[in-house]
């Protein structure tokens, strides 16, 4: 930070910071340190005593086939969600960048899903694809597809990915539109004069120049798919059928609150924490790069 003019006051700044710090300490640092501590404790089956076991819980979690399944599910879910949400949004943003007429209207209609809670996004898609009342499920059956996401794991995955991507399209769309607008028009014109057709211009000029936005969205979408989609999983599939959609966050919740395996749940929390830290670090590397760009 640059040296700046400040107010000479010794006590006031602490008072100003107090509310934020109090909440941070009580609800963030204390629980997080507890999670760290508990991740190294193991309770006996009756919950009467616990002993310190160092990294035994982590070893147990990381060798648990259910946990590894959950890692796999999370990766499939995140990659699919980010890929669908980003490519659809990019296509729509590129189209929106071409038109002038009704551009505002398109944007207004495109941002609705952002305001819909993830859990409700899941429910909306469930209404459409619920085997007994969903009109689109009816349509699929009419086409001869045996559709039942409540029994078929892959179909359940398709459903939650659809709901999760649908909700994220708005966000990605707005960022891609902003990113496209930031590309100087003369670059496109120069490329046209340089003999590049529309398609070639997109892939050799526009797409590379959009890379910072794309990379940023990749991180944001990954974080979203990891953490913010808990509501979708919880409301639509409950991790099922047969753990086919049990993501890491859902498993932490399930093991801690439903199955009450505290040590395991805490160890999983700590692993998630490491993932968030890694993603945040990547994101800030990006911010730095963006500052130096151009």
């Amino acid at each position: 930070m640059s040296p700046r003019v400040v107010f000479p006051n010794k006590i006031l700044p602490y008072l100003l910071l107090a509310p934020q710090l109090a909440i941070t300490l009580v609800f963030f640092y204390w629980p997080a340190s507890q999670a760290l501590y508990q991740s190294m404790l193991r309770e006996d089956p009756f919950g009467l005593s616990s002993k310190f076991v160092w990294f035994a819980n982590f070893r147990k979690v990381l060798s648990d086939p259910n946990y590894l399944n959950s890692v796999h599910v999370t990766i499939v879910f995140s990659v699919a969600t980010a890929a669908v949400a980003m490519s659809v949004a990019l296509l729509l943003a590129v189209m929106a960048d071409k038109v002038v007429r009704s551009r505002g209207l398109y944007r207004t209609l495109m941002i609705w899903p952002y305001a819909v809670a993830p859990a409700i996004a899941g429910m909306l898609w469930l209404f459409l694809f619920n085997p007994s009342i969903g009109s689109l499920a009816y349509g699929l059956r009419w086409l001869g597809i045996s559709w039942d996401p409540l029994l078929n794991g892959s179909q359940a995955m398709v459903l939650v990915v659809a709901a999760a991507s649908w909700k994220q399209i708005s966000y990605n769309f707005l960022f891609f539109v902003a990113g496209l607008q930031a590309i100087p028009k003369t670059l496109i014109e120069a490329a046209a004069i340089d003999g590049a057709g529309e398609h070639k211009r997109f892939w050799t000029i526009v797409f590379p120049l959009l890379a910072p936005t794309t990379f940023f969205l990749l991180v944001v979408n990954t974080v979203y798919a990891f953490f913010d989609t808990f509501g979708i999983i919880h409301a639509v599939t409950g991790g099922g059928p047969g753990k086919a959609t049990e993501t890491l966050v859902y498993k932490v919740y399930n093991d801690g609150f439903v199955n009450l395996i505290l040590g395991d749940s805490a160890a999983q929390s700590v692993i998630l924490m490491a993932i968030v830290i890694a993603l945040t670090a990547i994101q800030f590397r990006y911010v730095e790069r963006k500052v130096h760009y151009g």
């Binding site: 910071l17 934020q20 710090l21 941070t24 009580v26 609800f27 963030f28 640092y29 204390w30 629980p31 997080a32 507890q34 999670a35 508990q38 953490f227 808990f230 966050v249 932490v252 919740y253 801690g256 609150f257 505290l262 749940s265 805490a266 929390s269 700590v270 998630l272 924490m273 968030v276 830290i277 945040t280």
Partner: peptide, 24 residues
Amino acid sequence: FFFWLIFITLMLPVEVRILPTYKV
């Protein structure tokens, strides 16, 4: 120090501290 204390909470979403926060 306080700035970093606040900054680091970015890396502690509810999802990674569910149980202990509930206990609080």
